[in-house]
Nucleic acid binder design. Structure first.
Lengths: 174, 174
DNA sequence: ACGAGCATGTCAGTCACTGTCATCACTACA
DNA sequence: TGTAGTGATGACAGTGACTGACATGCTCGT
């Protein structure tokens, strides 16, 4: 079902694929498609819940002496680890998402969820209100920029490397 | 039409208001509603195009010796200036948006557009690729955090003040 | 008066998504 | 072994967001 959707999106594009098309190729009914995915877009964001949780847990598990920003970055490195061995799939997916505004929208919502959870984790580490928010935003921004660079490279270094580079660039903003 | 929509959203909520309802209260047809707004959500993001352009222009007009981040911040201060004397309206709008995930989504898309335009302006100032992206993201994050704080206060200081505070907090992240 | 252009109304159609009910496989348990 | 409960699926009808096509009326320059 998930595979059917990605195939069709890649072949005809997102808009040109109806929920019925996906269901048909997957051998189920349109109705059951919507029982598994809240809406058509969600198909492309299946693992995001897991990634957010991984990030959250990693922040709580990080050494207590890390700065808020470093703890948050440790989190997104852990979350990004889930993508590490799926570069091809991530790149294909990124191409589909980039081609459709409503999918970009959904992606931004997922990243916002990641930001919120990251801030929450930082707060549980005792970080104060405005700092937690800003550090979370910064870390997720780094993640976003790093992923974009990572997927747009043919035979890239690890995503973690990209994250480290982006983080360094961020710090040198002054 | 715009007023009709905001009223209805505030009264019954976004989902409980159909496009037909809005059109009816505005004294037009549903069809003409969709001629003026690309979709139902766009009603709440009417001025965003203007704000982005204002931000963009301000960055290009900023003193040449400002750092990338400072130039970007000058931009969002100028963009935010458009809201300065509409605090009540902004707060009402923020409440509606916060209550609906699909509206949050759209808001994030608008902020992403602002980020992109900001990065583009920085590049036109000669800022390099990764730096421009990160500075733009940081400035828009500051803007976002500042607006959130601004609208949630009864008789707040200016939005510009909030932006300055958030920017200071960002810099002290290390 | 006349034609161009532009906003609006009308109508039919597509598609995302939802509520409801029936069916069917599987499991627990008497 | 029979049976009641549970969960996944199918079938079907309905709502509402949006679109395309065509007709009508208004305004403005000539």
């Amino acid at each position: 079902m998930l595979r059917a959707a990605v195939e069709l999106f890649a072949e005809r594009g997102f808009e040109q694929t109806t929920a019925g098309d996906i269901a048909e190729r997957a051998g189920v009914t349109e109705r059951t498609f919507f029982r598994h995915f809240a809406d058509k877009r969600e198909v492309l964001f299946d693992g995001s819940e897991t990634m957010v949780r991984t990030t959250y847990d990693a922040i709580l598990a990080a050494p207590a002496d890390l700065s808020p920003l470093d703890a948050a970055l440790a989190g997104v490195v852990a979350g990004g680890g889930l993508l590490e061995d799926r570069h091809d799939h991530a790149a294909r997916r990124a191409r589909i998402v980039a081609a459709n505004p409503s999918l970009r929208e959904r992606e931004l919502l997922k990243l916002a969820a990641m930001t919120e959870k990251t801030a929450e984790a930082l707060r549980r580490r005792g970080v104060g209100e405005p700092t937690a928010d800003l550090a979370a935003h910064s870390a997720v921004t780094v993640f976003q920029v790093a992923v974009a660079a990572w997927v747009s490279t043919e035979r890239p270094p690890t995503l973690a490397t990209h994250i480290a580079q982006a983080a360094a660039a961020l710090r040198s903003l002054g």
